[in-house]
């Protein structure tokens, strides 16, 4: 590793969780999720008349037109697409030191990835329990969102540890969180 990148590794860590090698795969998964969710949302918005379902016959249609899918003003897949878009955006913004230069984006990233994954799992549970049906692409989307949780959390841990060190040094958590210039470099 180049010398100028060594300071990007959080203290006490063996690697930098904010490096591109760590982040880009998650962004890639988010884009896959975005593509799936967008396709499903377009079906729910009647842009497509049919939905691709290789295993469970009419089940996908049943799930995607269910009462649960219409619980909010916009179709649930559209909400999922927005979630994946936020994930991808929050994954790409900032440099390789963002765990300390802009903790807010790392926290937004973690919060976007975590709950989105858990909502996906809830929807997976509801498919067989409420509707006795399975939707292949919905399951794929859920798998994608669950796979993203683990790799996003290490970066959040690095940011939280940094904010903890700043707090112990009596530096304003608010300023540290938003990455104010005046607090940069005060704590490593």
């Amino acid at each position: 590793m180049e010398i100028n990148k060594l300071d990007a590794i959080p203290p006490g860590w063996s690697y930098n969780p904010a490096s591109w090698g760590q982040r880009l795969p998650i962004v890639g998964f988010a884009l896959v999720g975005l593509a799936i969710a967008t396709y499903l949302a377009l079906f729910q918005l009647h842009v497509f008349d049919t939905v691709w379902e290789p295993f469970f016959g009419g089940d996908s249609r049943k799930i995607l037109t269910s009462a649960t899918s219409k619980i909010l003003p916009i179709p649930d897949a559209a909400l999922g697409a927005i979630g994946y878009f936020v994930d991808a955006l929050a994954g790409i913004i900032g440099g390789i030191r963002r765990w300390r230069t802009m903790p807010w984006i790392v926290i937004v990233f973690g919060l976007a990835v975590g709950p989105l994954g858990f909502i996906s799992v809830l929807l997976v549970v509801l498919q067989p329990v409420l509707y006795d049906a399975w939707c292949t692409l919905c399951l794929c989307s859920a798998a994608v969102s669950v796979i993203m949780i683990g790799p996003a959390m290490d970066e959040m841990l690095a940011s939280l540890q940094y904010m903890k060190r700043a707090k112990d040094a009596n530096i304003s958590t608010w300023k540290v969180f938003w990455g104010y210039k005046e607090v940069q470099g005060k704590v490593l």
């Binding site: 969780p17 669950v146 949780i149 959390m153 290490d154």
Partner: peptide
């Protein structure tokens, strides 16, 4: 699945 990664 979340446990696949060391940090979690």
């Amino acid at each position: 699945i979340i446990s696949w990664w060391e940090a979690t």
